[in-house]
């Protein structure tokens, strides 16, 4: 399903049917899910548009209320000034993005994964996060590439104490998602103090045969400035 298509196009498997068909002067986008959900939209384009179907930042469904992703896992202890790599799962949202005249717009976003939200921090100043509970793996686990992705998280404990970690919060505005045999992200989490940590994404694919997903959360790319998220309410 993932990839770029010239319109009109049609994709179908056991779980989903995606199509953009010509309907008179219009193009009609249709998505039919196995559960019965059907979405239809009309596109007004000359027909030169390209459609990309790929995993996008998983913070949009069922309604956009945040741009943070929180992954909770079984608590782990990391030694003082230690560096360790773990693998976690994250939920996938699939975006159908149309390109025309060098501009892009998401036509549809859907997911095969259940959605859940949480609050990171106090209700007064914290942030709403898209929540996902994952197991911890020492190597990339097998995953359904239409439902869950794999995040390689490098944990760096910069404190002189053991750190107990049970979650990571990541900012959707700097997410770099790649797809290939599975969907992957690479991130880094630095433990700064006993209550704060900093997370950031690494702009690299898990392997050379992975393709970069189209990002729908854009920021100004200033090379010398890293976009990080400071987890100030514990980890």
């Amino acid at each position: 399903m993932y990839g770029r298509y010239e319109i009109p196009f049609e994709y179908s498997d056991d779980t989903i049917t995606l199509s953009i068909t010509e309907d008179g002067d219009f193009f009609r986008y249709t998505r039919e899910m196995a559960g019965g959900e059907t979405v239809q939209k009309t596109l007004l384009t000359t027909g030169s548009a390209i459609v990309a179907v790929n995993p996008i930042e998983p913070v949009n469904l069922p309604k956009k209320v945040t741009h943070y992703l929180e992954i909770e896992f079984t608590p782990i202890l990391i030694e003082p000034e230690g560096i360790k790599i773990i693998y976690l799962m994250f939920p996938i949202e699939i975006g159908v993005i149309v390109f025309g005249n060098k501009k892009m717009e998401s036509v549809d976003i859907f997911s095969f994964c259940p959605q859940k939200y949480s609050l990171y921090g106090p209700s007064g100043g914290g942030v709403i996060t898209k929540y996902f509970a994952s197991d911890i793996y020492s190597s990339p686990p097998k995953s359904n590439r239409y439902c869950t992705g794999v995040i390689r998280l490098e944990i760096v404990n910069k404190t002189p104490e053991w750190a107990n970690i049970s979650r990571t919060v990541l900012d959707g505005y700097s997410m770099k998602i790649y797809f290939g045999p599975y969907v992957s992200m690479l991130a880094r989490m630095e433990i700064l103090t006993p209550t704060t940590a900093e997370t950031e994404f690494i702009r690299n694919p898990a392997a050379s045969d992975f393709q970069k997903s189209v990002e729908i959360y854009h920021t100004l790319n200033i090379p010398s400035i890293k976009r990080t998220y400071l987890m100030e309410w514990g980890y």
Binding site: K63, V65, P114, S118, L119
Partner: peptide, 11 residues
């Protein structure tokens, strides 16, 4: 409540 996405996990 668990099935409803916007019923927060935490709190």
């Amino acid at each position: 409540i668990e099935d409803e996405p916007f019923c927060l996990k935490k709190p």
